[in-house]
């Protein structure tokens, strides 16, 4: 039995190593809210997406590119997946790995959007992709309930820097 267990653990560790490249945390809304309300001068680009959302998937490279282009500035990209938390291992992690996403990815594990959507933005009707750009120091925020081109994203971000 011990042997089998050791082999299983070893196997699990082997599998875990490539996964280290990008952790995907599963969080509840209060945790997301806490992160977005910190008194920091970093500008957050928060994109709400899902692996099943075609326009979201098309738009993701723009966030990755912006993250690289602004790597030396106080800009942080946070990709909030609205995939069901039950799909973490089946859908989200393989997707993140396959696309080589380097921006931080979290899965928001909330079943009732009506309980939190409004707290992200009163105007958000619930369609995705949805992007929030926020800077708590300057108290600036911008929201987009649509797919953004790279140029649109850059223009929007420039106003924060």
């Amino acid at each position: 039995m011990h042997q089998i267990r050791a082999i299983l653990i070893g196997f699990a560790l082997l599998l875990a190593v490539p996964g280290m490249a990008q952790q995907v945390a599963v969080i509840k809304f209060p945790e997301l809210q806490k992160r977005l309300s910190q008194p920091t001068d970093t500008t957050y680009i928060v994109n709400f997406w899902a692996t099943w959302c075609a326009p979201c998937v098309k738009e993701l490279p723009n966030f990755e590119q912006v993250r690289t282009a602004y790597a030396t500035q106080k800009v942080k990209v946070l990709l909030v997946s609205l995939d069901y938390a039950s799909q973490l291992d089946k859908k989200v992690k393989p997707f993140v790995k396959q696309r080589g996403l380097k921006s931080e990815v979290v899965v928001l594990n909330e079943s009732d959007p009506n309980s939190w959507l409004e707290q992200v933005d009163a105007k958000w009707s619930g369609s995705i992709p949805f992007t929030l750009i926020i800077n708590n120091k300057t108290k600036k925020r911008a929201t987009f309930e649509r797919k953004l081109t790279r140029a649109e994203l850059t223009t929007a971000l420039q106003k924060f820097l």
Partner: peptide
Amino acid sequence: STKAIGCTI
């Protein structure tokens, strides 16, 4: 009036 996640039209 309630809100929900859905696919963009």
